[in-house]
Every structure is written in C-alpha cells, then in structure tokens.
Simulated assay, not measured.
Amino acid sequence: MQIAAQIPEPAKLTAVALKAYARVADAWSLAQKEAAGLADMSESTWKRARKPGFAGELTKDQLLRLSAVIGIYKALELYFSAPLSQSWMTRPNTGPLFGGARPIDVAIDGGLPQILAVRTYLDALRGGA
C-alpha cells in the first residue's frame, strides 16, 4: 500500500508560517517595522497577518523568507544561550557579513539573498566550518 505525502493547503501553510514567524519576532523583540520589513510586507499587512484567521496569501518569496528566518532562529538557539540567542539579530556585529551593522538591518536591506546568507553563516558556525 502506497501512502501519498500530504501537502498542506496554502491557507494552512500560511497560518503555520505566520504563527511561527510571529513567535520569532516576539522572541527577538523586533519592532513592527523590522518584523514587517524582514517578511517583505507593509506594517499594516503585518499587523493583520499576526491575527488568527488572516485570509491573505503569502508569496513564495515571503514563505521562503519566513522559513529562512525560522531556520536562523533555530540555529541561534542551538549555537548560543539566552539572552544572546534572542538579541544576536539586533546587536551590532563585526562579522564579515555585517561590517558593524545589526544582522536584522543587513537582512532587511539585502532581502531574501541576504537572509539566506545569514542562515548559511550561522549553519557554518554551528557546524564548525
């Protein structure tokens, strides 16, 4: 007997992604503007998206962003202990990707490619590479 993999319907996927992302934004104490910018949405859309029952759809780019940010959160939780794991994204960083800027600002300004670069950077740190 063959069991087909269940692919979540878009609305359910969106709801789960937004709920997880909202928890990350809260854990990092992101301002509304920062959370919205990182997700590539307007502040008003982010305010609506945070509420249960949000009926909007996310683009593939937005879903990838949220997934990558959740991966960044997970890597930080594994690599650092609190409170550094929760403040790392909002603290100035002299690492090669950041040049003294805060990782959150670099990620917002650089969009999805930079968000993925931050995730890769953290995965390399975590893996010892």
Rank of each mutant, 00 (worst) to 15 (best):
Met1Gln: 13
Gln2Lys: 10
Gln6Cys: 08
Ala11Trp: 06
Ala124Phe: 09
Pro83Arg: 06
Ala68His: 01
Pro103Phe: 01
Lys60Leu: 14
Ala25Cys: 04
Thr120Val: 10
Leu125Pro: 00
Ala107Val: 06
Phe80Cys: 07
Ala39His: 00
Tyr73Ser: 07
Gly100Pro: 05
Tyr73Trp: 13
Leu13Ala: 15
Leu64Asp: 13
Ile108Asn: 03
Leu97Ser: 02
Gln2Glu: 09
Pro113Ala: 11
Leu38His: 00
Pro8Arg: 11
Leu58Pro: 05
Arg126Tyr: 11
Gln86Met: 08
Gln114Cys: 07
Gly110Ile: 00
Ser29Cys: 10
Ser85Cys: 14
Asp109Pro: 05
Tyr73Ala: 08
Glu43Ser: 11
Lys60Ser: 13
Tyr79Lys: 15
Asp123Gly: 10
Pro8Met: 13
Arg48Gln: 14
Met1Asp: 11
Gly110Met: 03
Gln86Lys: 15
Val106Met: 07
Ala129Asn: 14
Ala27Glu: 05
Val24Glu: 08
Asp109Ala: 15
Ser87Trp: 00
Ser42Asn: 08
Leu84Tyr: 13
Gly53Met: 07
Lys33Glu: 15
Gly127Ser: 15
Thr14Gly: 09
Gly53Asp: 05
Lys60Cys: 09
Pro103Ser: 03
Thr45Ser: 05
Val118Gln: 09
Ala36Gln: 04
Ile104Gln: 02
Leu76Gln: 06
Ser44Thr: 15
Trp46Ile: 03
Ala117Asn: 10
Ser42Phe: 08
Trp46Ala: 01
Ala27Trp: 02
Gly100Asn: 12
Pro96Gln: 11
Ala11Met: 10
Ala25Tyr: 00
Glu57Tyr: 10
Asp123Cys: 10
Pro103Val: 02
Asp40Val: 04
Gln32Trp: 09
Gln86Glu: 12
Tyr73Met: 06
Ser87Tyr: 00
Val16Gly: 12
Ala31Val: 11
Ala31Pro: 07
Gly111Ala: 02
Leu13Thr: 12
Trp88Ala: 02
Ser42Gly: 12
Ile70Glu: 06
Gly110Asp: 05
Gly95Cys: 05
Ala82Glu: 13
Ala129Gly: 15
Asp105Arg: 06
Ile7Ala: 14
Val106Pro: 03
Leu13Asp: 14
Glu77Phe: 10
